[in-house]
Simulated assay, not measured.
Amino acid sequence: MIDLDETSPDAILAAAVEDARAAVLELTGGGDVGEHLGVHHEDELVVTHTFACTRPGYVGWHWSVTVTRDADATRATVNEAVLLPGSDAIVAPSWVPYKERLQPGDLSPGDLLPVEDEDPRLVPTYLVGDDPLDPDARAQVRQVAGDLGLGRVRTLSIEGRDMAAERWYAGDGGPEAPLAKSAPDSCWSCGFLVRLAGPLSDTFGVCANGNANDDGKVVTLDHGCGAHSEVKLARKQQPIPVPDHVFDTLTDDELESL
């Protein structure tokens, strides 16, 4: 078929089906080329022919051959011939940088995950002088800062804090978690809640109940679970009491006769 766009393809190029097929056959060594699927207008004197690919394992792929010609020429010239995937082709997923592929829990003992110098989640705790790129000056300032007990080289930025808050609030320790929606009360009134210090203290705390699913994890104050410190069982929910042992006074105990 011929793809008619706003401008019809050049007639000479559109008719160069066999020239395009010959280019693919030369590329493949004489095989893997099926029927002609169509011709597509690319530019005034540029046309692309497509052919079915019969190579095993390449279902949905097609050969694409682009041809062109000079305005005064009467034959097509092959520009390129490539194998391309169609809409039904099985292709590898798009490449994703390793830092974006990592998920919480992926790090194993001994693995290192360096943080970039310009990470927006961190800001310098102190300045390193007028020339921060000078390694000697940086090392000297860090040595002095360490001697004075100024603490960490970098600290959490406002952006980094907000990103963490959004992640925690939307996670399993937030108010929308299924565990929280079925809880009898919220974490803010639980005796096992350890509040955070700083600007996040109004929203988050850490669970300290060893029997709870969230033990040792950050939870929102409006989170909750069934292990709340003030939860009480209704009478019908309490276990049936075990009756006292019965002392049999009518039967002789064989052990006493030994």
Rank of each mutant, 00 (worst) to 15 (best):
V78K: 04
F192Q: 14
A11N: 07
V128E: 05
K217H: 14
H223F: 15
E100Y: 11
C190M: 05
D162Q: 15
D222Q: 10
Q237Y: 07
P241Y: 12
Q143I: 02
E230D: 13
T74R: 07
D131H: 12
A71L: 09
E230N: 09
D162K: 12
P93K: 01
V231T: 15
D185Q: 06
D10A: 05
C225G: 09
V123P: 03
L156G: 08
G38D: 12
N213V: 06
S64L: 03
T66R: 02
V24M: 01
V242T: 15
Q143W: 05
V78Y: 12
S8L: 08
L25C: 09
A183I: 00
P184R: 05
R161D: 06
L156P: 05
D32Y: 14
L193I: 12
C190N: 08
A139V: 05
G173C: 09
C207R: 04
G171I: 03
W95Q: 09
L196E: 11
L83E: 02
G30W: 06
V33A: 06
T7Y: 04
G210A: 10
T7H: 13
C53R: 00
V246T: 05
A145S: 06
S229L: 14
T48V: 15
V144C: 01
G146Q: 07
L45T: 06
G30M: 06
I12Y: 05
C190Y: 08
T220P: 11
V144Q: 13
K232E: 15
D253S: 10
R195Q: 12
G38H: 06
H62K: 04
E26R: 12
A76H: 02
I12P: 02
T125E: 11
L150Q: 08
E100N: 12
Y169W: 12
V141C: 06
D172G: 07
V82I: 13
F204L: 00
E159A: 14
P120D: 00
H223L: 00
V153N: 01
L45E: 09
